[in-house]
Design a protein around this nucleic acid. Structure first.
Length: 184
DNA sequence: GTCGCGATAGTCT
DNA sequence: GACTATCGCGACA
């Protein structure tokens, strides 16, 4: 893993989520390359976070969430959509950052084709995975060596970060662990 | 612009 | 058998 990524993925997960904003996700899936810049993420903690998949301890579904930092955790949501997370912390912690929204960079026409529309390409976790071609087969792969990789921002981030409640959950809604990047 | 609702299937009780 | 870390569409303002 690059030194930069090691540095990024250490410490409390909510801090990591905030610092992931502006990072790029570079995907080589199905023989096609697409990339985005993250603008919306959510932090999910270990067993002490009741809204997290890790709150009940390891299961077959969330196994990769308990892997080492830099692992990709992909799960199926509502039986239809795929959602992708960046695993953080030490192996066994069960902490991860859900990638909810982004700005398209490379391969826009590919994303349009996969999404079947030209607007709202990556403004939700399910849409993001569909546009980038991320599915369950990528669960547990490495964000350093795998088909889906995390890269540092190309230029310093300009904008402000807002912390708000997480979306689509009913427990631990008091934690302001959803972070959005807004440009001026 | 906001609000409500149905689709859909893996996972856990 | 119940519950989702969602999405897209249609109705309405």
């Amino acid at each position: 893993m690059t030194a930069q990524l090691v540095d990024l993925l250490a410490g409390p997960v909510e801090g990591i989520a905030r610092r992931l904003l502006g990072w790029r996700l570079h995907c080589n899936t199905g023989g096609m390359v697409t990339s985005i810049m993250l603008t919306e993420v959510e932090a999910y903690g270990g067993p002490d976070d009741l809204a997290s998949h890790a709150s009940g301890g390891p299961t077959a579904r969330n196994a990769s969430m308990f892997g080492p930092a830099g692992t990709l955790y992909v799960y199926r949501s509502y039986g239809i959509h795929w959602c992708a997370n960046v695993v953080t912390g030490a192996a066994g912690d069960g902490e991860a950052v859900l990638m909810r929204g982004a700005i398209p960079l490379e391969g826009v026409s590919i994303m349009e084709q996969r999404r079947g529309r030209v607007d709202q390409l990556v403004d939700g976790p399910g849409k993001l995975c569909q546009a980038l071609g991320i599915t369950g087969e990528h669960d547990g792969s490495s964000l350093v060596n795998g088909p889906v990789r995390l890269l540092p921002p190309e230029e310093p981030i300009g904008g402000v970060v807002a912390a708000t409640p997480r979306i689509g959950i009913t427990k631990a809604t008091d934690r302001l662990w959803r972070f959005t990047l807004r440009r001026f």
